[in-house]
Simulated assay, not measured.
Amino acid sequence: MALTRRTVLGALALVPLAGCAAQPAATTPAASATSAGTTAAAKTYKIGIVQIVTHPSLDAVRTNFVEELKKQGVTAEVDYKNPEGDQSTLNTIAQGFAADKKDLVLAIATPSALAVAQAISDKPILFAAVTDPVGAKLVASLDAPGKNVTGTSDMNPIDKQIALVKQLVPNAKTIGMVYSSAEQNSLVQLELAKTEGAKVGLTVVGAAITNSSEVQQGAQSLVGKIDAFFIGTDNTVVSGLEGLISVAQTAKLPIITADGDSVKRGAVASWAVDYGKMGVQTAQMAAKILAGAAQPATMPVGFQDDPVLTINTAAAAKIGLTIPDAVKAAADVTL
C-alpha cells in the first residue's frame, strides 16, 4: 500500500541540517503580464531566493519558480543566492534578506528554510524541496502551517523505491543507505526506508557521513554487506554522488535514488517527484500570497502525487544487471 505522506510527515520529528561558499546575487526582473486570479503585477516585488547547493533538481525548482512568476503576472526583482552548503554563509544570506525587507523569500531545501525561518518572522516565506516540514518545525501542521511559512514538500514515494529494489534484485536481502547525519530530511528517509524494507523482507543499513568528501568512504564501508544502494533526497550525498557511483560500479551494485537527475549521472533507477513542477506549484502559491488572496498561515503545504520512474539501461549494463521488462514498460523516462 502506498505511503500516505500527510500521515507519515505528521508522525515524524527530526533534527536540523547543515549546509557549505556563496555565489553573488542575481537580480532578475520578471516580466509583467496579466494573470487570472492574481493582481500582484500592480507593483515590483523584492523576492529573495536561497538554494542550499547547486544541483539539477533544485535548479529546476528555482528556474521554474521564476518563469511561472512571470506567467502569473508578478513583476519582481529576484535576488538569488547560493551558499553551496556552507551553514555560516547561509545564515548570513538569511539575515541579509531580513535586513533588506524582501516581500517574499523562497528557501529551497530544508537547511535554507530553517535558516530563513529563524531570521524572518514578518514576511512571507515559501519553502520548496523540504521533505518533512512538520518534523523540521517549519509549520505547525500540513493543512494549517500557522505562521509566516508554507511551501511544497518533496516527500518521495519510498514505498515505491524500496519495492523497485526487489524488482531489480529479487534475491536482495540488505540495502545500504549513505546519509548525512546532519540532514533531518535524510534521517526521516532512513527511518521510512527501514519501515518499508521490513514490509518486503529487506534490511536497511546506514552509513553516516558529515560532508560530501566522505561519500565514497561511506559507500565503501557498506560493500560486502549489501545487495543494493538506496539514496534519498540528501543534499550532501548527492553533492558527492560520483564517489558513490564509482564504488557501486566496481562492486556491481545497483543504485536506486530519490531523484531523476542522479539517474542521469549513473544511478540505475529512481521513483521521484518532478522538481520542475514543484517550482511551478510554489510560484502559484507565491502569486496568491503577493496578491493578498492567501496567507501562509492558512495555506496548506503542497505535495505531488504523480512520481516519475526513470531508468538508466547503460548504468545497469555496466554492473551486469538486466532491467526487467515490466520495469522498462512502466518507466516514464528511459536513458
Rank of each mutant, 00 (worst) to 15 (best):
K43I: 01
F97T: 08
G243E: 02
V53T: 10
T110W: 04
L290F: 01
R6A: 14
L126M: 04
G10W: 03
P300Y: 00
T28V: 05
S213D: 15
T39I: 07
D143T: 02
T322H: 08
V308S: 06
G206C: 08
K199P: 09
K288V: 02
G201D: 06
T233S: 14
D332F: 04
T152M: 10
N211V: 00
T310G: 03
N64Y: 07
G266T: 07
P29L: 05
S213F: 04
F303K: 00
T75M: 08
T75K: 15
A258P: 04
D122W: 04
T110D: 05
A42P: 02
I226R: 12
M285W: 01
A316F: 03
M177S: 09
I125N: 14
A258H: 01
A283I: 00
I47F: 10
K71Q: 12
I226G: 10
L164M: 15
T210R: 13
A294K: 12
A286K: 05
A293R: 04
A293D: 09
G206P: 12
N171H: 14
R5D: 12
G96D: 15
I231Q: 13
R62S: 08
A117N: 11
G176C: 10
I255G: 09
P16M: 07
A286Y: 09
D259M: 01
A228S: 15
V301K: 00
D132Q: 02
Q189R: 06
S141F: 04
P324G: 11
G176W: 09
G266M: 06
K328R: 10
L253W: 11
L9M: 15
A251E: 05
L192F: 13
T282I: 03
N82K: 08
D154S: 10
S57D: 09
P111T: 12
T152Q: 07
E191F: 00
V268S: 07
A2F: 09
V268A: 06
A315R: 04
L202Y: 11
G232P: 05
K123I: 00
S212F: 10
A13N: 12
I49E: 04
T233L: 14
I323K: 14
A76H: 10
K264L: 11
F229G: 14
A330P: 00
T44E: 15
P145D: 06
V53P: 01
I323P: 11
R6V: 03
T89A: 15
T334G: 04
I47W: 08
A193I: 04
M1E: 14
L138W: 02
V263G: 12
A25Y: 05
T27P: 00
L168T: 07
A208I: 00
A115K: 01
V130C: 00
P296N: 08
T203W: 00
A286T: 06
I209N: 06
S181A: 13
G206T: 11
L190K: 15
A2H: 13
L17G: 15
Y275A: 05
L253T: 04
V237H: 10
N64P: 03
V61K: 03
Q95P: 06
K137M: 01
A330M: 02
E183K: 12
A26S: 13
K166T: 03
F230P: 02
S221I: 03
V139E: 08
N312R: 03
A11P: 01
T39N: 15
G243R: 04
D103F: 04
Q23S: 09
A272Q: 14
P133W: 05
A182T: 15
P296D: 07
S212P: 00
A198Q: 14
L321R: 08
T174M: 07
V237T: 14
V116D: 13
L192N: 01
K166I: 04
